[in-house]
Design a binder for these strands. Structure first.
Lengths: 171, 171
DNA sequence: CAGATATTGTACAACTTTTAACAAACAGGG
DNA sequence: CCCTGTTTGTTAAAAGTTGTACAATATCTG
């Protein structure tokens, strides 16, 4: 979400100039718009979650757990689902456990493992926060496209998501 | 880049149910695809900058400075351009200064101010890294769309970017 | 030009994320 | 069984980020 310089630099090193596939003007502006929207949207959604005392990462955990069977998930699975490192997730669950939103629970059948369990408070928090969050998402993003644009962009993005998902884990 | 639950939760609190504008299925899958692509792309581009010993934020600073007049910019302007807090930028420039990529320089005419200056090493680094980075951006993103999709998505995203830019700073 | 107000960049403290190392438990082959 | 290798999740220390306060300077108002 934070990159740039994908068109030819002001002065190109002559060796790479011939070989580097710089972005065209149209590609460039699209790329920069994508970066800017991603970054600013992230910022704005965070801002609007603050009154609920949640960071976006916290909210994401609540969402994933609330959709999981029995509202719980193995730490590793949760880390994978939220694209976080195991270490980072461990810290985050510790914090959320202190806040009473989740609970670590032993995992019958695999004594190495732990479940992260949504507590009642966690569930209620989700119920309370989700409506506000959807409104934010609509106001700053979804409602700013036509249904046709939404369909078209989904068609375009889905294979890219799949490609990137495939890279994850390997190299 | 990290959110979710924007469709009705499995069990909705009856009060909010009537009033909350949950996303439709089409909106939902588009929204999730957008989040996923943003996040994974960020991850992958970071990964491919690592061999150059640069984080995405470092690279962005290099890009912005390299495009600025005299390859330098006031700290505050640079913070604004890269959407960072002044504090965070200050730390980051300190790090990059240690790495020899930029140099703080007094600002004639305003003795409060400082320029962040791209050094020769910084400029050369940029020249060296940019081609690889463009290839990454193409391989994982830009080349996965048709020119028509690129134009359409830019048309769709540009006003959203403007909207979000407008919110920045105020509330 | 004095005094109030705003801007600029840093410093400190609190918090989050990363990296690497680790202990515990599992799995599979001899 | 035992040995080796893998998976699971945590931890400690380092690195990075954020928020607040601050000193220095600039600017505006009368």
């Amino acid at each position: 979400m934070e990159t740039n310089l994908t068109e030819a630099p002001a002065v190109s090193a002559s060796e790479s100039e011939a070989e580097t596939p710089w972005l065209t003007a149209a590609e460039q502006r699209f790329w920069r718009a994508h970066l800017e929207v991603s970054k600013l949207l992230d910022y704005q959604l965070s801002r609007e979650l603050q009154p609920h005392n949640l960071a976006i990462n916290d909210y994401e955990i609540l969402v994933v757990l609330s959709e999981a069977p029995d509202r719980r998930m193995r730490m590793t699975d949760l880390a994978t689902a939220t694209l976080q490192s195991k270490s980072r997730l461990s810290h985050q669950i510790t914090r959320m456990e202190s806040a009473g939103l989740v609970l670590r629970q032993e995992c019958p059948g695999d004594r190495r493992g732990l479940y992260a369990n949504l507590t009642d408070l966690g569930w209620e928090t989700m119920q309370k926060v989700a409506p506000d969050h959807v409104r934010s998402v609509r106001q700053h993003f979804v409602d700013r496209f036509t249904p046709e644009q939404i369909d078209a962009m989904y068609q375009a993005l889905a294979p890219v998501a799949e490609h990137l998902r495939g890279l994850r884990g390997r190299g």
